[in-house]
């Protein structure tokens, strides 16, 4: 295929441009792609395509009904998967169960280590949104031991029932 700009050289670069949801495709030779400048670059930080490709081979759209939506940005999981982009911060907790395995697949882990947000680190409640069931159970077991050791048996019984309930609900 010949370059669509100079119509002289072989097109080697496929350039996609999306404006207002309409995607146009161009095929350019290397020179024209470079000359046009911005279209020819590879953006080292653009990763949305990679992310949505992970979804495509993982997700079965039919299994997603009924449609759950993020209360804050109104995104559904299929909005997120088709765009390859998460809607808002809240989506990460709303769709935790679907996103967590993908995050693990991308990064090999799903736990942050590094700089803590000055507001986020102090905000325990926010952190709780992202605990797995296993982690919550483990925490409750610690509390159960503490309750038994300090002979608060009524409290211990409540915690024990809660653990049982959570383990059955897994």
């Amino acid at each position: 295929m010949l370059c669509q700009k100079c119509k002289k050289h072989t097109a080697t670069t496929q350039v996609k441009r999306t404006i207002n949801g309409i995607t146009e495709e161009f095929f350019l030779c290397r020179d024209c792609a470079a000359e046009i400048g911005f279209n020819g670059f590879i953006n080292p930080f653009s990763s949305a395509g990679f992310f949505s490709s992970l979804f495509n081979d993982k997700m079965d759209e039919k299994s997603l009904s009924p449609v759950k939506r993020c209360p804050k940005c109104n995104s559904s999981l299929s909005d997120i998967t088709s765009l390859g982009k998460v809607g808002c911060a809240e989506c990460y907790s709303v769709f935790e169960n679907s996103l967590s395995p993908l995050i693990t697949k991308i990064h090999g882990t799903n736990h942050h280590c590094g700089k803590l947000s000055p507001s986020g680190s102090a905000n325990e409640e926010k952190g709780n949104n992202f605990k797995t069931l296993e982690e919550e159970i483990a925490e409750l077991k610690v509390k159960l031991n503490e309750a038994v050791e300090s002979q608060e048996y009524e409290q211990a019984a409540v915690i024990r029932d809660k653990i049982k309930e959570m383990e059955e609900g897994k």
């Binding site: 080292p44 930080f45 990763s47 949305a48 990679f50 992310f51 390859g84 982009k85 998460v86 808002c88 911060a89 990460y92 907790s93 996103l99 993908l102 995050i103 991308i106 990064h107 799903n110 736990h111 942050h112 280590c113 590094g114 700089k115 803590l116 947000s117 000055p118 507001s119 986020g120 680190s121 926010k126 952190g127 949104n129 992202f130 605990k131």
Partner: peptide
Amino acid sequence: SETLNFAFSQRYGYLTECPTNLGTGLRAS
């Protein structure tokens, strides 16, 4: 961050539109 609140979770760190940037949000090159 003295005046702005950045989206952050204990588990995923700084929250980003694409999950490939979660955590530190740092890309060094």
